[in-house]
């Protein structure tokens, strides 16, 4: 399966061959064995970088939250060819990088925008973040409105690239 780590935007291709212990998987094509020891509270102890660390993973909605010691990572599955929720590169989805409030929407459905055009401003903890178009696109759908509170990963806008020769990168 393909997973995206939200903070870095990095994509991982992971296939779990055996859920363990130890977990046998391939990570981006490389075989990997991860020693685990289940704990009574639902956590597991893993061997990682020569150290033993407590880890925990759980899914909530579309997000998979993982702790490895004090480090936190949030992953989203990039849906394969199955059922609804499938997004090909032809329909780029702009998602909320953080939970917060939609402050301002600068475009309307049907608008055509150039690369770099500011689309939407979000606010969380008095900090504003403006998301912009990564390439020329038409605004297909805006499922949120100004003033609305949204979770991290919530769909803010669907766009269709105007020049399909230059597909937008998945942010």
């Amino acid at each position: 399966m393909k997973l995206r780590e939200l903070s870095s935007g990095r994509q991982f291709d992971v296939e779990v061959e055996h859920p363990g212990p130890p977990i046998k998987a391939t990570l981006d094509g490389a075989a990997l064995s991860l020693a685990t020891r289940a704990q009574p509270d639902g956590a597991t102890i893993i061997e990682c970088g020569g150290r033993r660390l407590r880890a925990f993973a759980a899914r909530r909605g579309d997000a998979i939250f993982v702790s490895v010691g004090p480090s936190t990572f949030t992953f989203a599955a990039i849906a394969a060819s199955r059922g609804a929720g499938r997004h090909s590169l032809a329909t780029p989805i702009l998602t909320a990088p953080m939970p917060g409030k939609v402050l301002k929407i600068m475009v309307a459905e049907g608008d055509e925008v150039e690369a770099g055009r500011a689309l939407i401003t979000m606010e969380a903890m008095k900090m504003e973040t403006t998301l912009s178009a990564e390439g020329p696109a038409r605004i297909k759908r805006i499922p949120v409105s100004a003033g609305q509170m949204v979770d991290a990963g919530a769909v803010l806008m669907e766009l269709s690239p105007i020049d399909s020769a230059k597909p937008q990168s998945d942010r």
């Binding site: 977990i23 993973a57 990572f73």
Partner: peptide, 11 residues
């Protein structure tokens, strides 16, 4: 930790 987390997320 990031690599291990990706595997745990898949599980």
């Amino acid at each position: 930790s990031l690599n291990a987390a990706a595997v745990l997320a898949a599980v």
